[in-house]
Design a protein around this nucleic acid. Structure first.
Lengths: 191, 191
DNA sequence: CGATTTTTTGAATCATATCAACGTACGTGG
DNA sequence: CCACGTACGTTGATATGATTCAAAAAATCG
């Protein structure tokens, strides 16, 4: 049930058997089919979500109706709108299933409690937050002053797995360019 | 000496007198004049820097020679290239003093040690990392699919203090637009 | 003050978006 | 398993927001 989660945590810290069980007692399972929402913009993001299988993505929709993907999450990853989760404000994101997905949910109050009571649990979250921050830093850097082609090159270099798993339209939205532009960039590169 | 730092930490967690002293014994002071570098691209970022007074900013320079500001740091803020610091890789940023600045430095090994030994210290860093992540999330959102004018509007809304303290050229670079475009946006708004 | 830096303004250019049409792949129900 | 409909990707023509280059005006600093 929680095998993948435990393995993932174990890469960073060790929890005792009792700590594991304590954590488990606060987790909820959820399955959602492809194309359904885990979170909708303006709702509150009330839990952290661990992906057991499948994949999700978070995105905002601007006032022209364009979709901007914030990030993807595959098996073994966490996803949430952390702005909403941490600051208890309405979400600016939708989170949607890209494939049928099995999820593990951790509610905010439980998360806070576990961070108080299990130092290794807090440490684990401190570490994955460090990693998430670094990934985001790279994302900001890649967003500034690169051409559409350069953005695509960097994606190939830094996240090649995305290309296999994600339709081109969503890749374009993730890069902040239009699908047409991405198509042309790819055409140009493939000569 | 460490008054501002202690006050800042105290907003989030409490350290005992002994913990404070232990932390202090690993801090170094440094003063740098305006326009000097705290970190240069390709060097390793070996410490976290707390700003006691003055201000700094971090930026990368792309291959066309354009400068892209990642973020600013004023009194009471921390700054570093966390990607370099955490992953022990060469920095992609320069960090430079915008004004004469007094700084407090915390080396990586000491930081790790203090996180092991003082739970409240680790908690403090977990919390400021959460805040930094949220700020960065907003930054990514503001970068995607907004016009130059909208980016400027959001800056006024979210970080009005910057406008007082930072020259327009740097604001433009922070927003990812040229100074000329920013000037035109402001002209247009001021009617 | 004079000198350097910053900001403004103008004109030309460029990268990307937009709109529209067409081809292709996909998966769902008959 | 095929056929149909919908979603996805490509291609072309045009529009547009922002950049670039250049030079003048304004602000800042020693």
């Amino acid at each position: 049930m929680f095998k993948l989660l435990h393995e993932t945590i174990l890469q960073h810290v060790t929890l005792t058997r009792e700590e594991q069980q304590k954590m488990e007692s606060h987790l909820r399972l959820k399955s959602i089919p492809k194309r359904t929402f885990l979170l909708r913009a303006n709702d509150y993001c009330r839990h952290l979500t661990f992906v057991r299988s499948g994949s999700l993505y978070s995105y905002s929709v601007d006032k022209k109706g364009n979709q901007h993907i914030f990030r993807f999450a595959f098996a073994g990853w966490w996803i949430a709108d952390l702005q909403s989760f941490f600051t208890d404000t309405p979400s600016t994101f939708n989170i949607e299933a890209l494939e049928d997905s099995e999820l593990i949910l951790m509610d905010r109050a439980d998360h806070e409690m576990l961070m108080e009571e299990i130092p290794a649990y807090e440490r684990y979250h401190r570490i994955i937050l460090e990693n998430a921050y670094v990934a985001m830093q790279r994302r900001v850097e890649n967003g500034l002053g690169l051409t559409a082609e350069e953005k695509y090159e960097r994606l190939i270099r830094d996240n090649p797995e995305l290309l296999q798993r994600v339709p081109q339209t969503l890749i374009a939205s993730y890069l902040g360019i239009t699908p047409e532009t991405l198509s042309r960039v790819r055409g140009k590169r493939a000569e």
